[in-house]
Amino acid sequence: MEFIYLAFILVLAAFLGFELINKVPATLHTPLMSGANAISGVTLIGALVSAGSDNTELTTWLGFAAVVFASINVVGGYLVTDRMLSMFKSKQNSSDTK
């Protein structure tokens, strides 16, 4: 039963992903990729448990390293995406700033 439940999540999330991303215009493809980098840093959630739980020393160390790399992605990904998206201006906005 558990396998079926996982398969459900897999299939639905994959279809949802395709539907969502297909609507992103070409002009935003670079921010989309860096934003995706940030979201793939979601491994941080799993890494927290490895680094903080009472397990072998090796688990803690591997978890700690995973926390570091996932945090780079989360923080760096969101910040650089925000920086990029701040630059995208419409005609209206860019004439306001002049």
Partner: peptide
């Protein structure tokens, strides 16, 4: 996630987030 009961110690977590976050922020800036 940090309130999960199987997370017992926070030193390594805090160190990892601070280190990774700082590197990430530096790269992004």
């Amino acid at each position: 996630t940090l309130i999960r009961q199987d997370i017992l110690s926070y030193e390594w977590i805090a160190a990892g987030i601070v280190l990774g976050g700082a590197i990430g922020a530096w790269l992004a800036k």
